[in-house]
């Protein structure tokens, strides 16, 4: 049987400002994941801003996984981060600078 693969869109056109966390996504079946972040619109400067990957055993209590990806700084830009050995629940957290906004599509590409 082919191994499972799945792309979950975890933020679909969301407008982010300030502190943001994506909804918890369960992926205990997967061995590897890529977070993709694509900007639809950007307002203000996001230079140097990074989104951190967090993991959780229960989807409620979270810890930094240690990996991060750059937040796109211009519309159309795509960034990504590969991770593995992440346990069960995944999410992205980001703190955007004062006055900055971004509309995003965030996806989680998973493979067993």
């Amino acid at each position: 049987m082919l191994q499972e693969s799945h792309t979950a869109v975890i933020a679909r056109g969301q407008h982010w400002r300030g502190e943001v966390a994506t909804e918890p996504y369960e992926a205990a079946w997967a061995k590897e994941a890529i977070f993709f972040l694509r900007a639809l619109k950007v307002e203000g400067s996001l230079q140097g801003t990074r989104a951190n990957i967090q993991i959780s055993a229960d989807g409620i209590h979270w810890a930094d996984e240690g990996s991060s990806l750059a937040v796109p700084t211009t519309a159309g830009e795509v960034t990504f981060c590969r991770i593995s050995h992440f346990g069960g629940f995944l999410r992205l957290v980001v703190a955007l600078p004062e006055g900055a906004r971004i509309q995003v599509v965030a996806s989680l590409n998973l493979k067993a």
Binding site: H6, A8, E23, A28, W29, L40, A57, I60
Partner: peptide, 23 residues
């Protein structure tokens, strides 16, 4: 424009495969 999506649909999250893990 994706913003034209009805708010009722905008809120919908992705289904997932869960092993029902609890704290």
């Amino acid at each position: 424009n994706i913003d034209t999506m009805h708010p009722g649909y905008q809120q919908i999250t992705a289904p997932m495969l869960s092993n029902l893990s609890h704290w």
